[in-house]
Structures are given as C-alpha cells and as structure tokens.
Design a protein around this nucleic acid. Structure first.
Lengths: 220, 220
DNA sequence: CTCAATTTACCCCAAATGTGGTATTGCCCT
DNA sequence: AGGGCAATACCACATTTGGGGTAAATTGAG
C-alpha cells in the first residue's frame, strides 16, 4: 500500500521540486497539491474515503491562513492524518505552535530529498521526524534550565530598549540576576537597575509577572 | 578527530555488545566504560582534558545511582558532554526526567547497531536522536490535547494535584506567597510547602521558571 | 480498617529580589 | 554646546524566596 501524500505549498518552484521528488519513489503516491490552506481544506473534503491522505506536507508560511492554522483545522476533522511541517525557519515559537496544532514532523526545506522521503516514511510509521536542530529545540521546551539563547529580534518599537529585552529574555529563560550578570559581563547592580526600569515600563513588580507579561505579549 | 565516547552500563553482556559495536567504526573511539554511575563520575574526574568524552552512552537502569541522576551530575560539571540515554523502556516519566536531567538523546536498546552509531554521530553534530516512539512521546509532552493521557498513567511525578495547580495558577497571575495565602485562607507556610513540592515535580527552582513552564505546558 | 497520598503547618537560615536613592559615561540629535 | 537617553555601577534596607527539615489531620482507594 502506497503512502498517500498531499502537498500544501504556495511557492510554484518548491511545489514542482517536491512533486518531482515524490514521483521517484514507488512506495509514495502524491494525491494532490494545493497552493493555500483554504484550497487544501476544501480539496480534502471532496476526496473519497479511499483517497484520504496518510500524510500532509505542509508549508508553514502560507498566505492568509498559515500552515499552523491549516494543520489545526485538518487535525480537527481528520485526526488520523499525519502532518509534517516544512519551513525554512527554525523559529522556536513556530515549532512550538506547529506541535500544538497537531503536526508530528517538522523538517527544514533545505534537507536532502532523501531525508524528506525518509521522514515521510517515519511519520507514517509512527515516528516524529524532525531536523536535527529542530529536535534540539523541542527538547529545550522541556528543559527549563538551559533554554537556547539564540533569539534574534527584529524591529524593537517597544518601550523596552534592546538591552532591556535582552535582560528580560534572560529571566524568562530562568536566569537569576547574578547568573545574568555573569552571562552579560556586567555588574549585578546593573542588572538590578535594568529590572527596576523594565518593571516600571511593564508596570509589574516581580519576576514572575514580568515573565508572564513577556510571554503573553510575545516580547521574547 | 574521533568522537570520544564513554559507556556506562552495568549488564556485562550489553557492555560487551556496545564495546564491540563501537570498535567497528573508526570515527568513534571508546575511551572507557563503567558499570555504575559512581564509577563513571569518579572515572571522568581523573581523565586528562584531552580525554574528556564528547558523548556518554548512559544506561538508565543502573544500580544505586541511576542513569538520570548520574546524567544530572555529569552535566553539572561537564555541561558540554552530550549524553545519550539507553534503555529498554519507553516509560514517559523516564523520558521526561532524562531530558530534564540534561540528556539530548534517547535510544531504545533494541535499535540496530547502525542506528546507535548514527545516533552518536547525530548527537555530536548538535542533533537530538530519539527512537521513533520516544520522539512521539516527547511531542506529546508539548501537546495539550494529549496531556491528559499522562494523567491516566501511573504515578507520573510531574502530575500536579488539584491544589497544587490552584497554587501555580496563583503565581502565574502574579500573586506572592503571602497574598496567595490570604486568598486561599491558608498559612503562608503551607503555600511555601506547596511550592517546594511543585518545584520538585516541575524540576524548576524559581517562580519565574515555574511560570514559564506552566505557560509553555499549558498547565494553567 | 489500613496504607498512601494530599493538604495543612511550622522551624531555621541563606540567598535572591524589590525599591528607594545617586552618579558617571557615552551617544544621538538639534 | 547642551539636552535627553541608554547603559553602566553603587549603597542601603525590607521583603520575599528557596531549600533543608518535621509532622499533623484529612481523604481516598483497596
């Protein structure tokens, strides 16, 4: 029995690449491909029972309804379909949301064709294929004490300065004032000063609430 | 440069199996093997800098000090060593604790030799190799809809009691121990006791991290 | 009924945090 | 040249927190 696959990808060149890739393997059958989440949702509805896919390759960065929302919708109606996210980004938030929405695989688009094919098979087989760096980040979600520190910010139009955000990120990741001071090569006094200012700007009075606000407002 | 590996495994037959396995690959060098956590801790201390391993293969089921405790100790002193757990069980609690203790790989012992070797390479390379079923379970920790499943299971030591969840909700909302005590009509001492227990279950050591974990894992 | 888990409560003490200050340096902007 | 602001650093002091104990009453399952 071939693994029935559906592709959701808006970039024509990538759609072509994956279509060709899948056609090479005779244990895999590409049922259909769609350029948007809406099209996929509607398209799958029209399929006869025998054509319901086993696996969906889902681009995260889709126009309008993105891959994460689409995944949530698909899983709602077809919980047995396995979904593999495809993306160029290894953004922690996206990874986390993708998993929450019901995806069981998360591969970066720059993986080799072989890796993608293997991942499809593994997914079908009950596994959870992830690109190496993604797997590490997933573990880090469960590992409060040493979360990855990467995090590159874009436009900082907020009240908080760059530095303040850096400090805030630190405490969200569980650092104490002193460890934060060591990490940033500044005095613990300075860290305290920064937090006094951060607290004023966020209108909070404790680390715990600062963490809460930071996460809620997606500051970090 | 060969990948320097240390093996911690108490079963002689398995120690033999892995020792032989590793000897077949010339990009991997078995530095030493130990039959207990204590021996490993002491042995590693005596190694010259140049012989500090890159990877430790750690049996979970060790006598006295188990693999999880040993891992935590090793990572405390050598955070750069990558640790791969080896076990016959795919017990959710063990998986969770292993990750918390600092392991980045988790392979079942019945994997093929090739799979183990690939996993060592992947670990060294920044990945997080996991047996298929383990990877699925890891995702399930992050999947809110499947979390209740953990509750059905055995004494999962990360399952907070009703009351504990109530307390946790309090601090996520910014309460201090004392205000929480007033709200719940209990003594501040009791609040402290609860948090000591909550921290143990969540494997955290501060309000800030507790808040982070609570939100991430959708406990509140 | 009995045992285990939960919830309650207290002691002690070290460490971390929150708040009030003041002050210097360097930078951008006008 | 001067004003504003971000980043740095320090002092002092009260409060909160974290971690080590111990131990009671209550509840629930078997």
């Amino acid at each position: 029995m071939k693994i029935k696959v559906i592709l959701v990808e808006d970039t024509p060149s990538l759609r072509k690449r994956f279509t060709e890739l899948l056609s090479f393997y005779d244990d895999i059958e590409l049922i259909d491909s769609y350029a948007s989440g809406e099209a996929a949702i509607n398209g799958i509805k029209l399929l006869p029972q025998s054509r319901i896919p086993d696996v969906i390759l889902m681009d995260i960065e889709l126009p309008k309804m993105n891959g994460i929302e689409t995944t949530a919708l698909v899983k709602e109606n077809y919980p047995e379909i396995e979904i593999m996210m495809l993306t160029v980004f290894e953004d922690e938030t996206k990874i986390f949301q993708a998993i929450q929405s019901g995806a069981s695989g998360y591969m970066l688009k720059d993986e080799s064709g072989d890796a993608i094919i293997d991942a499809i098979r593994e997914l079908q087989n009950g596994g959870a294929p992830m690109s190496q760096s993604v797997a590490r980040k997933v573990l880090s979600f469960l590992h409060p004490n040493q979360l990855p520190k990467a995090k590159i910010h874009e436009p900082e139009d907020f009240n908080l300065s760059e530095r303040e955000l850096e400090l805030l990120t630190g405490i969200v990741q569980g650092d104490s004032y002193t460890t934060l001071a060591k990490k940033l090569f500044i005095s613990p006094h300075t860290v305290k000063t920064h937090f006094k200012n951060i607290y004023k700007k966020l209108h909070v009075h404790s680390k715990a609430t600062a963490v809460r606000v930071a996460i809620d407002r997606k500051l970090v």
